[in-house]
């Protein structure tokens, strides 16, 4: 069967790709576009390592088909920093040692940014429930939650 030709926007740039009907967005990002910052931990929507945003909405890219990207704006971890200027969440994750192995980190950062875009002043409980779809096996979440809450405070102060 012929592949589909898809036109989309990824991290602000127009992108075209070919994909099979059954290919997930995660597979397209990793295998076709070589954007391997988006990780596969389960491919069943349970771990959040493949988190991206589609028109600002947080989704697991393993639960989305590549063809569904047509005409939408995708953001991945590769688009989070502005050149060599890290996003405040990225900087704060480093300062708080909020990562150990780092495999879940892109997903957490994408999900955390989506949280702060909706809710610039989350409580600890709100942050914990928003990030409950992202699994981390190394940190016990403590330093991740602290980094997110402190970033939110900084960004509120800066705006």
């Amino acid at each position: 069967m012929a592949k589909h030709h898809i036109s989309t926007t990824i991290n602000g740039e127009p992108v075209e790709f070919l994909c099979n009907t059954e290919q997930t967005m995660l597979d397209v990002l990793r295998d076709e576009l070589h954007l391997t910052g988006t990780k596969e931990g389960c491919a069943t929507g349970d771990c959040g390592a493949c988190s991206i945003t589609v028109d600002g909405r947080l989704v697991c890219s393993c639960l989305m088909l590549g063809v569904e990207a047509e005409g939408h704006a995708i953001q991945t971890i590769e688009g989070m920093a502005d050149g060599d200027q890290l996003h405040p969440l990225q900087q704060k994750f480093l300062e708080y040692a909020a990562l150990q192995c780092g495999i879940c980190t892109p997903g957490f950062l994408v999900a955390s940014r989506a949280l702060l875009e909706r809710n610039p002043n989350p409580t600890e409980e709100e942050a914990r429930y928003w990030l409950a779809g992202n699994l981390c096996r190394c940190t016990g979440y403590d330093k991740i939650i602290r980094a997110v809450l402190d970033t939110a405070a900084d960004m509120r102060g800066a705006s």
Partner: peptide, 11 residues
Amino acid sequence: GVDKVTGRAQF
């Protein structure tokens, strides 16, 4: 750290 928060690290 920077490689891991920007998605550059190769797993």
